[in-house]
């Protein structure tokens, strides 16, 4: 899922300084799971913002809403009535949700309340790690299900660099070397022979973000 972290409180206060009535919109999907912008975190942020503004004698009225998925037009549309009653929106969904609202409500100023950080998994309570960079041409079948694009600092495709040591990456000593993980898992699966196959350089300019924003179209689903 998409992982995010709340922006520094001071930064959010600065965005909202000119306003006295806003909508704080959370999202019931990814940012709820990583505790950055679901209903609970949204309510906490709203409470903190109200108190901070009250304290400086500039009260801020905050309406709160958490669509099930802010990045889906049907759910974003649910906010239509509320938008007319506020001067600005603070969205604590990922950057996609922010843009969905920006597209649907062109006359309303919108601010992001979180930094959208990566696509990752929960590895322990309160700990999330990056797992995929949406490269557009998945090669996990060749790398024992471990992604060298997201998890190797140098995005190496055919084995480790010379800095791999004791299973750790030379760039960050606390991080596992992706290629050590790939090797160990391939070995335990009896699949080491797969690593003899050379993985060609990725076509970054074709499938990845490097060729501009990507689009998926399914003709059969269009109405």
């Amino acid at each position: 899922m998409i992982k995010a972290e709340q922006k520094p409180f001071e930064e959010i206060l600065e965005y909202l300084a000119p306003y006295n009535k806003i909508l704080l919109s959370g999202c019931g999907a990814c940012v709820t799971v990583c505790h950055a912008g679901g209903e609970k975190e949204g309510a906490l942020l709203a409470s903190a913002l109200r108190m901070a503004r009250q304290k400086i004698g500039k009260p801020l009225e905050i309406l709160e809403s958490t669509p099930a998925r802010q990045c889906e037009p049907e759910f974003a549309q649910e906010l239509s009535d509320t938008i007319g009653r506020v001067q600005a929106i603070l969205s604590v969904s990922c950057g996609v949700g922010v843009q969905t609202l920006a597209r649907h409500f062109p006359a309303t100023q919108i601010f992001p309340g979180v930094n959208t950080t990566f696509l990752g998994e929960t590895v322990a309570h309160g700990v999330w790690e990056e797992r995929c960079q949406a490269c557009g041409d998945c090669i996990l079948e060749k790398t024992a299900g471990i992604c060298p694009i997201a998890r190797c600092a140098k995005q190496l495709l055919n084995g480790p660099c010379g800095g791999s040591s004791n299973g750790k990456c030379e760039i960050k000593r606390e991080t596992d070397c992706a290629w050590q993980l790939i090797y160990d898992r391939s070995k335990s699966l009896g699949q080491l022979h797969r690593l003899t196959e050379i993985i060609p350089a990725k076509q970054w300019g074709v499938q990845s973000r490097d060729s501009g924003p990507r689009r998926i179209v399914r003709e059969d689903l269009k109405v």
Partner: peptide, 8 residues
């Protein structure tokens, strides 16, 4: 932590 940010 949140109270510190608010200044409480």
């Amino acid at each position: 932590q949140i109270m510190t940010k608010i200044g409480l």
